[in-house]
Design a protein around this nucleic acid. Structure first.
Lengths: 222, 222
DNA sequence: CCAATCTCCGCACAGGTGTTCGATAGAATT
DNA sequence: AATTCTATCGAACACCTGTGCGGAGATTGG
């Protein structure tokens, strides 16, 4: 399913039908559609609706007023980009290994079709909405962060952090990334492991580069 | 909200509107309703619809064909405890501390109104539906299970486990509960810490009592 | 370059659809 | 017993609504 074969008008029609139905609880009439999309003739709307039915985006009951609904396929196609209430879709953008450079994505972080997507309850990431992505942890090198092989780390891309937040930091001199609690202490930075039995490390502030803030760690034992 | 004040006919109308809309994607006409409920005159249907609007069960757009929908209150009254698609509500039943006995709830595990409830994506708990509950981890005594203070452990109550599953086990002689990977080895049981740098412990099979299986560990850094 | 197809328009029409009205009969009220 | 209220019916009406038709401009393919 993909909307490439459709004209702009047809895409607009589909969207309008969805919004109208959600807003009112019943679908629009041919004339409602025409008015919204900017079509003066009802026959033209009819014409485009037939197309949409033919392409499988729409289902329609002949001669029944408001007798149309978005097809299940199209609904599903839509849903990918608009999760249900309380859920948020987070793109899974790759893997991390401590001891190697973290691949922090550069451009816009969006849900593309090809992405792996994980579902995260909204309140688990504190309502964060932009620049949120997930990485799967590769290997056991992050045990001191209490993060295990296979865990999923949900991050928000940001360059600064407040004391006490857990961040992904790059240690420039070692060319190495770790997950630690961040504390600024004068010219130094204290990086505190999550594991309370392990000792912090102190590094020069110039030597650390914050890659992102850790919002959550998810471990699924299947 | 309750349907006591309604006549049988009106209840039937409400139900029909819901079913029709679900089935077709658009609401029925006045005549559709009349036909289903057994009313010959459209005016009588109109009459009863007005009543339903007045009582708050229905919302209606005047003079608009099929311009009706069940009110939010009535819909809620219908669905009450069902979480949104893809989410599952899991009751948070207490706290665990390694080194102490795990409070495994005894009776039915249901969503009571007073419970703390956390939201978990369905596929994160592998579609498990019964006997699932959550506990908050108290203290740092479970570091060897890679579980930190404040983490949330999602469990399914069960008495048996397959090899390789992570379980909450009671060590009877010590009167102590831990989270470990479970491996049956003859008359012994090998309990393997999640932390790959820690050694397993071997105990007599009679000495372990499985309390539940760990489905997921959730850590939120707020 | 011409024919075929696509996309659009306005208009007219038939049937769908909500509303209104007058009437009836039983129940509740006075 | 008279009156009012409730619930129903059938019929008529006006407007809503989807469809069909003839035509026009744009685009495409040979």
């Amino acid at each position: 399913m993909n909307t490439d074969k459709l004209s702009d008008r047809q895409r607009k029609i589909l969207q309008f039908i969805g919004e109208f139905t959600d807003a009112n609880g019943y679908p629009p009439t041919v004339r409602d559609i025409g008015h919204d999309v900017g079509i003066s003739s009802t026959s033209v709307v009819s014409y485009n609706l037939k197309k949409l039915v033919k392409e499988g985006f729409l289902e329609r009951e002949d001669k029944v007023s408001r007798g149309l609904r978005l097809s299940d396929e199209y609904r599903e196609f839509q849903v990918r980009f608009s999760p249900p209430e309380g859920l948020r879709f987070v793109p899974m953008l790759g893997r991390i290994t401590a001891g190697e450079l973290l691949e922090v994505p550069a451009g816009d972080i969006t849900l593309a079709d090809e992405d792996d997507i994980i579902e995260v309850p909204e309140d688990m990431i504190g309502g964060m909405t932009d620049d949120v992505f997930a990485l799967r942890v590769d290997g056991t090198s992050m045990v001191d962060a209490m993060v295990n092989d296979g865990d999923v780390v949900v991050l928000r891309r940001q360059q600064t952090a407040r004391n006490g937040e857990m961040v992904a930091v790059l240690l420039k001199d070692r060319g190495e990334t770790t997950l630690k609690y961040f504390y600024r202490e004068g010219k130094q930075v204290r990086l505190q492991p999550a594991n309370p039995f392990m000792d912090p490390i102190y590094v020069d502030a110039d030597n650390v580069e914050i890659q992102g803030r850790v919002l959550a760690v998810l471990r699924t034992l299947l």
